[in-house]
Measured scan of single mutants.
Amino acid sequence: QTIHNGDQTYHYDNPEEAIKVAQKLAKIYNLTVTVKGNTVQVH
């Protein structure tokens, strides 16, 4: 599972963990989380 947060990319073995982290980032920075296959984008 990969999270793209602007210019930063994070890799997680656990998809659920990746989505949790993405949602935390989204709340902190007031962003949107988009899940596309194995990629979670925060923008």
Rank of each mutant, 00 (worst) to 15 (best):
Q1A: 12
Q1T: 12
Q1L: 12
Q1Y: 07
Q1N: 10
Q1F: 11
T2W: 13
T2Y: 12
T2R: 08
T2I: 11
T2A: 12
T2E: 12
T2F: 13
T2S: 11
I3D: 11
I3L: 12
I3N: 11
I3P: 10
I3Y: 08
I3R: 08
I3S: 11
I3E: 10
I3M: 11
H4M: 10
H4W: 14
H4I: 10
H4G: 09
H4V: 09
H4F: 13
N5C: 15
N5F: 14
N5T: 11
G6A: 11
G6W: 14
G6V: 10
G6I: 10
D7Y: 15
D7C: 15
D7G: 13
D7K: 12
D7L: 14
D7H: 15
D7E: 08
Q8M: 14
Q8N: 08
Q8S: 10
Q8E: 08
Q8R: 15
Q8L: 13
T9G: 03
T9D: 03
T9W: 14
T9A: 05
T9Y: 15
T9S: 06
T9R: 05
Y10S: 02
Y10K: 02
Y10A: 02
Y10L: 08
Y10V: 02
Y10M: 04
H11Q: 08
H11D: 04
H11T: 14
H11V: 14
H11L: 07
H11W: 12
H11K: 08
Y12V: 03
Y12S: 02
Y12F: 15
Y12P: 01
Y12M: 05
Y12H: 02
Y12N: 01
Y12K: 01
Y12W: 03
D13R: 14
D13E: 08
N14E: 03
N14F: 04
N14K: 04
N14R: 05
N14Q: 03
N14G: 04
P15M: 09
P15I: 08
P15N: 09
P15C: 14
P15G: 04
P15Y: 09
P15V: 09
P15R: 07
E16N: 06
E16M: 07
E16C: 11
E16Y: 09
E16S: 06
E16A: 10
E17V: 11
E17C: 11
E17M: 13
E17G: 02
E17F: 07
E17T: 14
E17N: 04
E17L: 10
E17Y: 07
A18K: 00
A18N: 00
A18I: 02
A18S: 01
A18M: 02
A18W: 05
A18P: 01
A18H: 01
I19P: 00
I19G: 04
I19M: 13
I19W: 14
I19C: 14
K20T: 06
K20F: 12
K20C: 15
K20I: 08
V21I: 09
V21Y: 10
V21A: 15
V21G: 06
V21H: 09
A22Y: 04
A22T: 01
A22H: 01
A22C: 12
A22M: 03
A22W: 09
A22K: 01
Q23I: 13
Q23T: 10
Q23P: 00
Q23V: 09
Q23H: 09
L25Q: 00
L25S: 00
L25A: 01
L25T: 00
A26P: 01
A26Y: 06
A26M: 14
A26S: 12
A26I: 11
A26G: 05
A26L: 07
A26V: 09
A26W: 07
K27G: 06
K27R: 12
K27H: 08
K27Q: 12
K27W: 11
K27Y: 12
I28L: 13
I28G: 02
I28F: 13
I28Y: 14
I28K: 11
I28W: 14
I28Q: 09
Y29N: 05
Y29P: 14
Y29R: 12
Y29A: 07
Y29I: 05
Y29F: 10
Y29M: 05
Y29K: 11
N30H: 12
N30W: 14
N30P: 02
N30A: 06
N30L: 05
N30Y: 11
N30V: 03
L31N: 02
L31M: 07
L31H: 09
L31I: 09
L31W: 10
L31V: 09
L31D: 01
L31A: 06
T32W: 10
T32R: 07
T32K: 09
T32P: 05
T32G: 03
T32I: 13
T32C: 15
V33F: 03
V33W: 01
V33S: 01
V33M: 02
V33C: 05
V33A: 02
T34F: 07
T34C: 12
T34W: 05
T34P: 00
T34K: 04
T34R: 04
T34A: 03
T34G: 01
T34Y: 06
T34D: 03
V35I: 06
V35S: 02
V35L: 04
V35A: 02
V35D: 00
K36N: 12
K36E: 10
K36G: 03
G37Q: 03
G37T: 02
G37E: 04
G37Y: 04
G37A: 04
G37D: 06
G37S: 02
G37C: 15
N38T: 07
N38G: 05
N38C: 15
T39L: 06
T39V: 11
T39I: 12
T39C: 14
T39R: 04
T39S: 07
T39Y: 06
T39Q: 06
V40A: 01
V40I: 10
V40D: 00
V40H: 01
V40C: 05
V40T: 01
V40P: 00
V40Q: 00
Q41G: 02
Q41V: 15
Q41E: 07
Q41N: 07
Q41P: 00
Q41F: 15
Q41I: 15
V42F: 03
V42N: 00
V42Y: 02
V42C: 09
V42I: 11
V42M: 02
V42K: 01
H43L: 07
H43M: 07
H43I: 08
H43V: 06
H43K: 07
